[in-house]
């Protein structure tokens, strides 16, 4: 579910950072008293635990040879509460980006929102609604509540991906089919995640139940409020962005790639019909060295051919430059040693 930079537009990427940044900031601020010395190593080590747990693959029953692994957001939210869990999973997403290059740097904000914040809070809230008293819980109820929580949390998170991608408008995949694909793919994943989470919880209940009872005694109403507040904020922000985009879309994106393919991401913020901008654009497209495509409506075969040669030259030039850099560095290094 890691999203890449290229799927998002700048406003969406930035608002992703804004939402998850302020959400995380709010948690840290709210639980300043709770996160004193003793919780600090706990969150870090739980983050490391997620990496370790992801090493353990679960062979899938229906598809031989395939396997799945734990995501962990729901498990941590249940074991240490959604606040600490969300911080731990957020750091996992950050480390996945910075160390393992999972997900792009620009998409980090959205990835934290999709994979850490939403599943942790939503999952915990739903789990808490259903699970009831842990001391006298039946196995069925435990499994049911965890799996339902997992399905809702992960499906919601999965739905955020197509929403963000289509808001960005970089890839114009039909929204409904993209959404449906994501939901179907993640339905299986979320059921397995719920099942794994439930059996881990069952194991802990058997081996060291006091870990969980510390969490249960906590009041759940405040986290419900936190969930609702956060969702409200997220909705307002998303709606604002959406409305901005919607008002801009027909003339900005359509215009840009229908009629001016050489200036595809050019956004006419001021005025599309401005002659001056048009003139500047025309000038820019004339002096541009390597436009490797041309507008099919304009039949300028000569210009097209010369453009073609410049693009070939461009590729060769870049390749030659890189090999020169490589050769020079190697020679210098050899001479040094």
């Amino acid at each position: 579910m890691h999203m890449q930079n290229e799927l998002l537009s700048m406003p969406i990427a930035v608002s992703g950072f804004a939402i998850s940044g302020s959400w995380l900031g709010y948690i840290c601020h709210k639980s300043k008293e709770a996160i004193y010395a003793e919780k600090l190593p706990l969150m870090g080590i739980l983050g490391a635990f997620v990496f370790a747990a992801q090493m353990i693959n679960f062979p899938l029953p229906l598809f031989a040879g395939t396997s799945s692994h734990l995501i962990g957001a729901l498990l941590l939210a249940i074991v240490v509460g959604p606040d600490l869990g969300a911080i731990a999973i957020s750091s996992v997403v950050i480390v996945q980006c910075l160390v393992f290059q999972d997900g792009g740097l620009l998409a980090l904000g959205c990835n934290i929102l999709n994979m850490a914040l939403v599943p942790s809070y939503l999952g915990y809230w739903i789990y808490n609604l259903i699970v009831g008293d842990l001391d006298s819980i039946s196995t069925k109820r435990l499994y049911a509540s965890t799996i339902i929580a997992s399905i809702i949390a992960i499906e919601t998170a999965a739905a955020l991906v197509p929403i963000e991608v289509s808001l960005s408008g970089v890839l114009r995949v039909p929204f409904t089919s993209f959404l449906l694909t994501m939901e179907t793919l993640h339905l299986i994943a979320s059921i397995i995640e719920g099942f794994i989470t439930a059996s881990v919880i069952a194991y802990i209940l058997k081996v060291r139940p006091q870990i969980l009872s510390a969490q249960c005694s906590r009041e759940s109403s405040y986290s419900l409020r936190a969930v609702l507040t956060s969702f409200a904020i997220a909705t307002v922000v998303m709606a604002t962005i959406l409305s901005i985009l919607a008002s801009e879309k027909p003339d900005a994106l359509e215009w840009s790639y229908k009629d001016r393919p050489d200036q595809a991401n050019f956004k006419p913020i001021i005025d599309n019909d401005s002659k001056k901008i048009q003139a500047v654009d025309d000038f820019a497209s004339k002096i541009a060295i390597m436009p490797d495509y041309s507008n099919p409506k304009v039949k300028q075969s000569e210009a097209a051919i010369s453009n073609g040669w410049t693009s070939l030259a461009g590729i060769l030039g870049a390749l030659i430059t890189m090999s020169l850099i490589w050769v020079i560095t190697t020679i210098i290094r050899k001479q040094k040693s």
Partner: peptide, 23 residues
């Protein structure tokens, strides 16, 4: 925020240790 930094530091330190455990 420093809280996040120290947190990430601890996380990174113990990835190796815990991956060993699951291995």
């Amino acid at each position: 925020p420093r809280l996040l930094i120290l947190q990430l530091a601890v996380l990174y330190r113990y990835i190796f240790l815990l991956i060993d455990v699951s291995g």
